[in-house]
Design a binder for these strands. Structure first.
Length: 204
DNA sequence: AGCATGATGTCCT
DNA sequence: GGACATCATGCTG
């Protein structure tokens, strides 16, 4: 299963029981989108883990099923896209076997192919401002709430996650998550992961 | 049916 | 550092 040199990850990648582990394994992986006949790719450089079973910061806490969160309860390997602040579309990757609501927020990516398309979508001209935040990354990749509950491991899917043939080495930094102060003690969980020294990290 | 609230980004001072 | 845009969602009643 290959799209232009990227191997699409199998469903099993998303089913491991530790969402923080998957959040780290997603670093360095490639997001491929083919939306409105426009092809873009980007490398994941920053992620956050959310666990609806124990984590107040997760929309699905405590195992709360609503129309918005129900996709998090489905089998891993699907998208969870929701509207934040009425403006920003945030892209998450659902993990775990069916019934366990956990997901990984894609907070930042490094643009690879289709930068001209990303600049058009974002209405900016500087590479560094293109994808260095969760709202910006989704917008640059053409992802919106229209793409909620999309299967990510299908060949020729509109959104898929892959890895490059030649693996690149990097160090992983860890911190608390951004913008979840409302979660009380859970805001202190060290569940944000990012590639050390990458230029496209959302915040220092 | 009404209301409070964001897993943010951009612009202003 | 701070204001604020903007609306789907979830909760109350």
């Amino acid at each position: 299963m290959t799209i232009k040199g990227v191997n699409i990850l199998p469903k099993e990648f998303f089913l491991k029981d530790d969402v923080t582990e998957i959040a780290q394994h997603l670093l360095g992986k490639i997001i491929v989108t083919q939306i409105n006949d426009e092809y873009t790719t980007a490398r994941i450089v920053e992620t956050e883990a959310y666990d609806g079973t124990i984590d107040k910061a997760c929309h699905a806490f405590p195992n709360k099923i609503t129309r918005r969160t129900e996709v998090m309860f489905s089998e891993g390997g699907r998208s969870y896209v929701y509207l934040c602040y009425g403006i920003h579309h945030l892209f998450n990757i659902v993990t775990q076997v069916e019934g366990i609501p956990k997901a990984v927020l894609i907070r930042a990516v490094e643009p690879l192919e289709g930068k001209d398309i990303m600049k058009k979508r974002r209405k900016v001209n500087t590479d560094l401002q293109l994808t260095n935040g969760p709202g910006k990354a989704a917008q640059a990749l053409g992802i919106s709430t229209l793409h909620n509950d999309v299967i990510l491991y299908q060949k020729n899917g509109i959104i898929s996650i892959g890895c490059e043939m030649n693996n690149v080495n990097f160090e992983i930094n860890v911190s608390t998550r951004i913008g979840v102060d409302y979660a009380g003690e859970d805001a202190k969980l060290p569940w944000r992961f990012y590639i050390k020294n990458n230029a496209y990290i959302s915040k220092k």
